[in-house]
């Protein structure tokens, strides 16, 4: 009883420590990226006021003067930077003069679609990778093994946007099974349930295109990880105890073999979010990636910088998620130094 409560006390402490570590890392990353954004605005060719206004060429002197005053562009750089960081911390991401709206409201409007897409792709890649990799590892050496290696090599070399287009060509243009682009069918009255189903149908192709390469990586990793674990002593012990094959796979092999995959998934979160930008462009998915594309066409810097910041935050959130998963499944370590 006492030992259990000490144990749980230690656990709470470890979790608190980890959360504190993550918070420090989170703040550090946000500040560094904000500083980076600031440097970029000043490194861009031309007057920073013009950059903030959206490099339209239509240099409305009144607006530029107003911007210079508002952003204190005549003050020394350190003060400008401090002001900028202060605004970022208070969630003021600036104003898009091109769209006549605050950047925060633009991002907030597009955020759900991006979160839906990246979360679906991430879960799809992780879950299917773990399941397929385990199957391949348990049945190592069969033809499915070779097939898996070839498919993952091919996917690893495929540009994600091209894969998306090819899936559109096959499933939308040729077979007409799935919608080719968009988020939801427009102009059709639908109940909430129908609407969710419709969004789900639109989600399939982008999510699969985005997940495909990670699915391949995780499957291969999981396969070799399962093979490694299978040959360790504690599995022999489990077999000697007379445990059933299914139980050994799920309780002993799977749980241990998943750890490296979760680690890699966390490390690749940044690449996944970057891929989402391209995929949203391909499928006209109304998320942050699409917002970047439109902002690029208009050279709308405040939007670009804001999205960069928010997407970095999404990556940190995914890192946090994989770290939490790691803690839950790792059978050995309950306290891991916050890093």
């Amino acid at each position: 009883m006492t030992s259990a409560s000490i144990n749980s006390g230690g656990r709470v402490f470890a979790v608190a420590l980890a959360l504190a570590g993550w918070f420090v890392k989170f703040v550090a990353v946000v500040l560094v990226i904000a500083t980076f954004n600031f440097i970029l605005v000043h490194a861009a060719p031309g007057d920073p006021a013009q950059v903030i206004a959206g490099q339209s060429g239509a240099s409305d002197e009144k607006l530029l003067a107003q911007l210079r005053a508002e952003y204190g562009l005549d003050k020394p750089y350190p003060i400008q930077l401090a002001n900028y960081l202060k605004r970022v911390v208070t969630l003021d991401l600036g104003y898009s003069y091109r769209q006549q709206r605050t950047v925060a409201s633009l991002i907030l409007e597009r955020l759900p679609a991006t979160l839906l897409l990246t979360a679906t792709a991430f879960t799809l890649a992780l879950l299917s990778g773990i399941i397929l990799g385990t199957l391949a590892g348990v049945r190592a050496g069969k033809w499915s093994d070779t097939l898996l290696t070839i498919v993952s090599l091919l996917l690893y070399a495929t540009p994600v946007f091209w894969l998306g287009l090819m899936l559109v060509l096959l499933f939308s243009v040729q077979l007409d099974w799935l919608p080719a682009f968009g988020y939801v069918t427009i102009g059709v009255p639908m109940t909430t349930l129908q609407r969710m189903g419709d969004i789900g149908m639109h989600l399939i192709l982008p999510a699969v295109s985005l997940a495909a390469v990670y699915l391949a990586i995780y499957t291969r990793l999981m396969r070799s990880s399962v093979l490694d674990v299978t040959h360790q002593d504690f599995i022999k012990t489990a077999k000697a105890k007379g445990l059933k094959q299914g139980r050994i796979i799920i309780r002993h092999i799977l749980r241990n073999a998943m750890l490296p995959i979760v680690t890699v998934a966390g490390m690749q979160a940044g690449a996944l979010v970057g891929g989402a930008v391209v995929i949203e462009t391909v499928f006209a998915w109304p998320g942050l990636g699409r917002l970047i594309y439109d902002a690029l066409l208009q050279r709308d810097y405040p939007v670009l910088l804001g999205v960069f910041l928010v997407m970095s935050v999404i990556v940190i959130a995914l890192n946090l998620l994989t770290d939490a998963i790691y803690r839950v499944i790792d059978p050995r370590v309950s306290v891991r130094a916050a890093s």
Binding site: V29, L40, A43, A44, G270, I292, L304, F308
Partner: peptide, 16 residues
């Protein structure tokens, strides 16, 4: 490694 590299590349190229 935390920063989404592709988006950083987009920003850099768009800026310079």
């Amino acid at each position: 490694q935390t920063i989404p590299g592709f988006i950083l590349a987009i920003l850099l190229v768009a800026t310079i």
